[in-house]
Amino acid sequence: MPYQQDDDDLWEPPSRRLARGVGELMVTLGVIALLFAAYAVYGKAWRIEAEQHLIDDRLNRTWATANAGEAPAPGQPLARLHIPKLDMKWAVVEGVTQADLRKGPGHYPKTARPGEIGNMAVAGHRIPSVFWDIDRLREGDTIVAETRNAWFIYSVTGHREVRPTAVEVVAPTPDQPGVPPERAMLTLTTCNPKFQNWQRLVVFAELTRSQAKSAGRPPELEKRK
């Protein structure tokens, strides 16, 4: 009987039904894969942007209420980071756990704080609203750390790719663990290549000068190369 009168479906041979089933499955998996790609690029970026709004407000409130000398609690903002060349700025939180990094760039605990002699190390996701483009930073480009009372202007000294275990890049004197620091350095780490995790991209910068908040915004913030 080639035709089933009381059913809307046309009769098909089993092989054809199977082929249609597999086809549906393939299309469904394809759509899910595309959706996941969109999530990896935009979804996470939106989430971090939303968190950054909250954390930035909290930073302003903290700065408005004295006790600036205290070490920030894990997950709480401690400074702001500006990269004028990329037209980016973030509130940096204390800590580099997955939970901390969902709020924005995270400051490696126990590394130097902005402007201090030593190495201020900051990790961030390689997604569009965080450290996506830091491979475009070149020697001499400006990174500005903003604290409650001062601006610290760092100048990029270089960047390179390292293995994920290369902890020497966040040592007080980068690449020379155990050597007492003499300079104030800033080190950014993120994953490399984009969306992969077998390398880390590291950007090094050195403090060139600082400026009190009372002296206004540093001119480096406006400069776009």
Binding site: P164, T165, A166, V167, T189, T190, C191, Q196, W198
Partner: peptide, 14 residues
């Protein structure tokens, strides 16, 4: 997937 590991640490990527 661990694609968002962005820190350098002694055990990372092992």
């Amino acid at each position: 997937l661990g694609l968002d590991e962005v820190t350098v640490e002694p055990s990372a990527g092992q």
